[in-house]
Simulated scan of single mutants.
Amino acid sequence: MDEPERVRLPEGFEDVDVDILVQLVADMLVRLITHNDRVPLSPEAVTRFHSRSAPGISVLDYLRRIVQFTRAERVCLLITLHYIDQICTRIPTFTLSSLTCHRFVITSIAVSSKALCDAFSTNNLYARVGGIPVGELNMLEREFLRMIDWSLTCTREVLQEYYASLVRTHSAVPSSRPSSPSPAPGPTQASTILVETTTVSPEPPQPPTVEQNMAYHEFQQQGRGGRS
């Protein structure tokens, strides 16, 4: 049997093919889900992101659908991993599982696109693509911002570290038998990405852009009953 063809990936995440990045991110999320689904769900751990049952679409196909219809940028895909780490650090009871992943991902990309990108879609489009009502996405967005404490940005170096971690993890194991990038915690302990961003050289904070100020104003209007 022939071995699968290996793709040589660029060093910088800005140059990687978007679909390859989607595959890398989806692979990481699926491995997290596979582990975390073994963790018993306690009542206090239930969040607005929990679905009654796991969606019928795979994580990979879901991410591809989002990218296809919203033109989500690479930074939005990568920073989703950073958001997972930050939220799980702030709220240890939260876990990314088959019941939370899809709703978390569409909310993360909707929020990050407004914070980081010059052009972004409306919540109406994100909701249609994500398969949830727009009113529900609006509530998920507010809950997401509360959980992340409005800390929506990070440096390019942090994103590059996540990309490098994805590449190392993916290339270090056969594609048919993925394993965790680090020793797996016990079956009763939830797992996160856990890239140590404190060792990454920080950049000085940048003032908000016009687009970010407009997005914040739009969010405030939604909270007052306006439509997204």
Rank of each mutant, 00 (worst) to 15 (best):
E3C: 09
F13R: 12
V16T: 09
I20R: 12
I20K: 03
Q23E: 14
L24V: 06
V25N: 00
D27L: 06
L29N: 03
R31P: 01
R31F: 02
I33K: 07
P40S: 10
S42V: 11
S42P: 05
P43K: 07
E44P: 03
A45N: 11
V46H: 01
H50I: 10
G56D: 15
D61N: 14
R64F: 01
C76R: 01
T80R: 00
Y83A: 09
T93M: 09
S97G: 02
S98A: 13
L99S: 06
T100C: 06
H102I: 07
V105I: 15
S108H: 03
V111E: 05
V111I: 15
F120E: 00
Y126A: 06
G130W: 01
P133R: 08
L140Q: 03
R142C: 13
M147F: 05
T153M: 11
T153L: 13
C154W: 00
R156T: 13
R156D: 15
E157K: 08
L159H: 03
Y163G: 07
Y163I: 07
V167K: 13
V167C: 15
T169L: 07
P174L: 09
S175C: 07
P181C: 05
T192F: 04
I193G: 05
E196V: 10
T197I: 15
V200E: 09
V200A: 10
S201M: 14
P204Y: 00
P204K: 04
P205V: 11
P207L: 03
A215E: 11
Y216M: 08
Q220I: 14
Q222F: 10
G225E: 10
G225P: 10
